[in-house]
Amino acid sequence: MDYIEYIDRKTGNLLRETVPGEQWLKWLYHNPLGKLALHSVVKKKLISEWYGRKMDSPESCAKITGFVKDLGIDMSEAIRPMEDYASFNDFFIRELKAEARPIDNTPGSVVSPADGKVLAFKNMERLDSFFVKGQSFSLDDFLQNRHLSEKYNGGSLLIFRLAPVDYHRFHFPADGQISASTQINGEYYSVSPYAVRNMLRVYWENKREYSTLKTDTAGDILLCEVGATMVGSIIQSYTPDSMIHKGQEKGLFKFGGSTVIMLLEKGKTKIDEDILQNTANGFETSIKMGQPIAASCIEL
């Protein structure tokens, strides 16, 4: 894999992603010496926490201007100007103006919980279109909960990958009642396609937190936030066991790339065809929080 390409949802064009530390990632996941460093040091919690603390320091503000320029980040979307942040992490978890991410309010629609690139599988047992053949998504390993594994067996899987350039707060995809979050400790592998195409187990070996959103229109939606290399922490900002609204903030990731995984019950929703087709062709689709990704199959 020489570089990462994805489909721009707005234009339908095939684009190449700018990846900070691209050569480093290729070395870690595809070079024998890199793999040795990965399994002995890089995936460990200590490294990610150390870097997270470094990004919390006032000195880290010096990185903001270059980061914005190199990755073409549109700061007009942010509530606060670039010079108003106390650290790089403060900038990294920046809030956006409400009008920057309009929420699709079509009755029965399910919206993207985050900015990033999305893969969608109508049946999570059929992943060969993107991942190396022979791999399957293990619900038992991912959830470590037999009841939930049975509930979502045969259902749909959506994987939202947040790169460092992306807005790093995540939101609710529909109206409903949200459960408390269940934490599962794990490693800190990268979630870049350089890592996961041939190592799907990253999703159930990394640190993660999941919760269930009970909805009237789309069944029970399972939302899982997955940490990754250099992600300092996953912060949940919602109130457990409360009623929430579509587009309401759920939480945030501190520095690094990360992932939100969504599980949908079989027969309750229909994923948008363009996302399914792009995935079938082996490409992620760019997405913004609040954009529609699926529609209800339940009679309202």
Rank of each mutant, 00 (worst) to 15 (best):
G267K: 02
G257Q: 02
W27V: 01
Y194P: 14
L264A: 02
Q135S: 10
F130N: 00
E99Y: 09
K207C: 05
G256N: 12
M82C: 11
E299D: 14
V132E: 14
L213M: 04
G186K: 10
I64W: 06
Y29M: 01
A62T: 08
H171E: 03
I293G: 06
R146M: 06
I261F: 00
S112P: 12
D84F: 14
P107N: 05
L252A: 10
I244S: 07
G227V: 12
K207P: 00
F160I: 12
L14E: 01
I103D: 00
S233Y: 10
L264F: 13
D70P: 06
E95D: 14
K35W: 03
K268C: 01
I178W: 00
L148S: 00
D84L: 00
G66E: 12
R126C: 08
C61F: 04
E22S: 06
D84Q: 13
R146H: 14
E59I: 11
G232Y: 12
R16V: 11
P173M: 07
E265H: 10
Q135H: 02
L96G: 04
T65M: 09
H147E: 15
L222E: 03
E284K: 12
R126S: 10
Y188G: 03
D175P: 09
L264I: 07
S109Q: 07
L200S: 01
L222H: 02
P113W: 10
S60C: 04
N89L: 09
G232F: 07
D140Y: 14
K254Q: 13
L143D: 05
Q135R: 04
F91I: 12
T106K: 09
K266M: 03
A120H: 02
R169M: 10
D2Q: 06
S156E: 00
M230E: 02
N123E: 08
S296K: 14
S190N: 08
I4H: 07
V132Q: 11
D90H: 15
Q23N: 15
T65I: 14
V132F: 13
P164V: 01
G72I: 08
Y210T: 07
K254E: 12
L213A: 03
K44L: 10
Y85D: 00
G290Y: 02
S57F: 04
N31S: 08
T269L: 03
E49Q: 14
T217Q: 13
S112G: 14
S48V: 12
L162Q: 08
N198V: 03
K133F: 05
K43D: 06
G256M: 06
S181D: 02
G155F: 02
S136T: 13
K63H: 11
N31V: 14
G155T: 01
N206H: 08
